[in-house]
Computed example of a mutant assay.
Amino acid sequence: MTSPDTLDITLTPPPGGQILHQSDRATIIWGDCRDPDVIAQVPLDYDLLCTDPPYGVGWQSSRGKNFAKIEGDDGATDWPGVLRLWARRLRNSRHVYVFGYSSDELTEPLGLGPTAEIIWDKRAIGMGNLSMPWGPGHEVITFGVSNVNPKHGGKARQGGLTARMRQGSVIRVPRKNATAVTRHPTEKPWPLLAQLIESSTMRGDLVVDPCAGSGSTGVAAVLEGRRCFLVEVDRQYAELAVQRVQAAERLARQMEAS
């Protein structure tokens, strides 16, 4: 029997997902990015794919944090194959940033042309394997240029459509220390994502993140004057993304009005 105080909340997103927030700057969907009906909602010819998919390593919480296991992080999902479906809707010769995967794993599935390896220097040493004398202090980000989509026509460029001048492949942005990680176990700092977004888009461009987590990509996009389309399968994180992006929208409007 269900008590009167029990909330009947569905934890699995409906087919096609559910739009939790939509404005002229952002769309946030609670949904499974592997769902074809969710993918079909992504605007065709968007401008940047920037995402941090599960790595398939079965992330475990630590230091007593009550984080749930990350959906899709059991190694059973072919994430490069999933992202291929998202990359097909990307505009010709635009850019892709994917955390945690090498270019060898992504070039063929995503149909990438030129690629590069970016190193995120976290300015701190992580836990890693404590039996080893070296602790992890960086993370790999694969940059790629979408190859020609025959459906769209045109010729692929070499990745020169950027808002900033050419720069080095090491980005130094401090990560949060363990005690400050309270929203999402693999949350990326938005200033890191802002550098990627600013380097590969112009103001008003649409940034897409199908594995949005707590919404850092959306926060960075909005604060950089871009638009965002986010999808997150975990209801708790999707709602958190809404809160953070809405706060970024308020700040962006204040900055534009000043």
Rank of each mutant, 00 (worst) to 15 (best):
L11S: 10
G160I: 13
V42W: 10
N129D: 12
W120Y: 03
E239F: 04
T51N: 06
P15Y: 00
C228V: 07
R157M: 12
G154M: 11
G17M: 09
P185L: 00
V231K: 02
S214P: 04
T6P: 13
A26V: 00
G16M: 00
L49A: 10
D78Y: 03
P36K: 14
S103D: 10
G137S: 12
L230K: 05
A163L: 05
F99Q: 07
A257V: 11
L251P: 00
K155G: 13
R164S: 09
C228P: 07
L206W: 11
R123H: 11
T12F: 01
L206P: 09
V245N: 00
V208D: 02
P4I: 07
T27A: 13
V242K: 00
Q254C: 05
S62Q: 15
L251M: 04
D209S: 11
G168T: 07
D37S: 12
R94N: 14
S200E: 10
A238P: 13
G215D: 03
S103W: 04
A241E: 09
G225R: 01
L48P: 04
L20T: 06
A212W: 01
Y97Q: 10
P80W: 08
T182E: 13
E198I: 02
R63S: 15
Q41N: 05
C211D: 09
V98A: 09
D73A: 07
D104A: 07
W86T: 00
Q195D: 03
G56W: 00
A241R: 06
F99G: 01
A238W: 01
G137M: 08
F143H: 07
A178M: 06
L161F: 15
